[in-house]
Write a protein that binds this DNA or RNA. Structure first.
Lengths: 204, 204
DNA sequence: ACGATTAGATACCAAACGGTATGGATGTGT
DNA sequence: ACACATCCATACCGTTTGGTATCTAATCGT
């Protein structure tokens, strides 16, 4: 076996563990996530897990850094940053969110927000890494609003940083409330209101 | 001992258990809440607990019904329903929220939202009871907006039910985001934006 | 080709978990 | 006053938890 395939194999089991842990944490929360469940669904054993991760906390932090942050970056942050018409792209992304999420995804909620609510008061390392992601996200929205403001698409008196924070909060709030209503309809209504708020920042 | 004092004693230990369970759940989440911790902080034992509650789930549900729902009702719903100028009262309550919560309260988040995020996908009984509270809350905001709309304080084209859902979501979202920032300042900024949204529904 | 390192399986562990069975007080109804 | 129910403490139980020690292959560096 060459070095490359070996490294690939190494990474493969690590990725399997990460993916499985991500799933389990998403369903049960971090505290409720069972190491044995994670291993069972991968077919691996504790030997493999504790070879790649020092303990449960390290596994959880790796899920945050290597799964959640990456997903958010691909799905949201990059698209907003790269857009020539950022506010419109922001509205687009929100619309896609309402249209594409199925009921199960809504029931499980936002992986980032789930961990924030559960772990922020309990573990400073969790809190800090989640905070970094959150600030990155807010900064992306802030920049998008600012850019659009310079394009004359957003009212000059708007405080873009404050608006970005509110959009982020309301976004997570919408997903969070939807988690408790089994239907997808209130979620879409809520997102429409959020879009309405964003449009109220814009010049007609 | 008379019947009255006996009943009071009975209720007293039950209330002690509820209060302690509320505290523990607020700090650790429901799954993370330890029965032994709850008992230790009351000085009671398992005999007492399992005399008053069938199991941990029943204790958790009682905390929802008898502590969280009651608190929310006293602090928010009644004040909104009783107000002659509901939108103004709503804005007041939000302002008080931003001014009165200390850092610890923010770090621990909203007890209702905490349980929603943790338990909605895991336990149908939890989900249902939390949903009842949520709908009650939304309905209170809805009625408040509607009443103010009839008073000519809110624009006639506003969909009060949708706006109420969004206000609720954004509210919880603000508290949820604040949970991750140790400072109280972003929380206040976020609430100011929420107030701005509500004012945008009003007639100047 | 051979010693050293890495990957991962197996078996085990102490601690914490929620929950139960029993028994002794204390109070209640008649 | 006596039978009965209520309230709660003590001791215990089986299960699950995250974590460790050990051992065997496989692979790497030289």
């Amino acid at each position: 076996m060459t070095t490359d395939t070996h490294l690939k194999q190494h990474d493969a089991t690590r990725e399997k563990l990460l993916a499985s842990a991500y799933c389990e944490i998403r369903r049960q929360g971090y505290q409720g996530a069972s190491i044995n469940n994670i291993l069972e669904s991968t077919g691996l054993t504790k030997g493999a897990l504790y070879h790649h991760f020092a303990n449960k906390q390290a596994l959880g932090l790796a899920v945050i850094d290597e799964v959640i942050a990456v997903n958010l970056n691909d799905w949201f942050i990059q698209r907003i940053r790269d857009s020539a018409t950022p506010v419109e792209t922001l509205l687009d992304v929100i619309a896609q969110l309402g249209a594409r999420l199925d009921e199960e995804a809504i029931l499980l909620g936002c992986p980032l927000n789930n961990l924030i609510q559960e772990m922020s008061p309990l573990d400073e390392q969790f809190r800090h890494r989640l905070n970094v992601i959150l600030e990155d996200w807010q900064s992306a929205i802030d920049s998008a609003l600012h850019k659009s403001q310079q394009q004359g698409r957003i009212k000059p008196e708007i405080d873009c940083s404050a608006a970005a924070l509110f959009i982020l909060s309301a976004w997570e709030g919408c997903i969070g409330m939807a988690k408790n209503r089994q239907s997808i309809r209130p979620f879409q209504i809520c997102l429409e209101q959020l879009q309405g708020y964003i449009r109220s920042l814009m010049i007609l």
